[in-house]
Design a protein around this nucleic acid. Structure first.
Lengths: 190, 190
DNA sequence: AAACCTCATTGACAAACGTCAAGAAATTAG
DNA sequence: CTAATTTCTTGACGTTTGTCAATGAGGTTT
């Protein structure tokens, strides 16, 4: 909870009233490992901030799980489109570890926005970061192959590689676990 | 120019004053085929709306041009990050045909925003659409192979396939022109 | 009409990847 | 500590893709 306030303060300083408002209108949830937070086809009612643990967002295609992204401490996770437009989600969200979440309910979003313009600004900023992150993901799909994307992870998010089972990383890179194993071998021996 | 006003009116109705303001603060540009609008490394100063013609956004990797997206009539094009943060662009933008553009200059953005809250709202809405579009692109990279992405184009943007030389489409799909040719053959005979 | 240019197709071959299957290593549970 | 389960690695083989090269088709220029 303090983690969230501390995080938000990096964008814009919140008054005591605003902090109190946040505390009253959110929920802290403890979720076990491998727990599905959002299922494909379901309309998302919750927006999460991770204070502890790790979560993955993945698609189900031909009964395969293809992960789009991994989220860890101090990150927001949500099915953005499903949450804001209240339409069925096209992907799932599930925990990879026991995870502690701050939960924003869709019914309280309006209350937040009208309580203080700072919350609206924060929402816009979070969206802008999301947009930047998305454009980076797209450019890495276009400009890199699986090996390049793995090296990218190694450089920018080495903790993810230590933390997350390799076969999940493989689905994130878009290759089979076997190929990822061979990519790793190739990298070490070079 | 009327094309732009008409397009904006679909989001929110503009007053005569606002329309006049737009007309005074934009520039209409006629650009020949294969003209580079933005080069990699350059800081973007212009935001475009296409009234006629076609443009592609592409990356230069290992002296290869990899196209990220094609833009046609009634679409905004820009190096979003470079334009808003005034940092060097990581990609290029060039015309595929003789193209007519409405040009917004970065120096006038503030004027627009302070002239009317409607312009701020429009900016946010355009950004939201961009975000949605980006997430669709990411999901298609994750869930589809080159053939699937081509079928997707055939279904959703058939006019692009007719209009744009096939080897550009190939770099968009992430395959060589030869493979795209074989994919097409495969589809026709099935 | 001929020469030219751009673009698309096709074949041949090598390289990379997915799949299947087996086994090794690491983690968890009893 | 051992058994069980999960995760990772390795080999073999078939499929797909990229690359190189040649050919063909369509449009433009001179």
């Amino acid at each position: 909870m303090n983690t969230l306030i501390h995080f938000l303060n990096r964008y814009t300083e919140l008054s005591n009233k605003e902090i109190a408002f946040v505390e009253e209108n959110i929920l802290v949830k403890q979720v076990p490992k491998n727990h599905v937070l959002l299922e494909e086809g379901q309309v998302s009612t919750e927006f999460y901030f991770i204070t502890k643990g790790c979560v993955r967002l993945y698609y189900l295609t031909n009964s395969e799980e293809k992960t789009a992204y991994f989220y860890t401490e101090n990150m927001f996770v949500s099915s953005y489109e499903s949450f804001t437009k209240q339409v069925p989600a096209t992907h799932c969200i599930a925990t990879l570890e026991e995870t502690e979440l701050v939960v924003f309910n869709v019914n309280q979003v309006e209350k937040f926005m009208s309580f203080s313009p700072k919350f609206e600004m924060l929402a816009r900023m979070i969206m802008e970061e999301e947009l930047s992150a998305n454009q980076y993901i797209i450019s890495s799909f276009i400009n890199k192959n699986a090996e390049g994307r793995y090296l990218d992870l190694l450089q920018n998010k080495p903790e993810l590689i230590k933390r997350i089972p390799q076969h999940y990383i493989a689905t994130f890179l878009g290759v089979s676990p076997e190929t990822l194993s061979r990519i790793r071998k190739r990298i070490v021996t070079n």
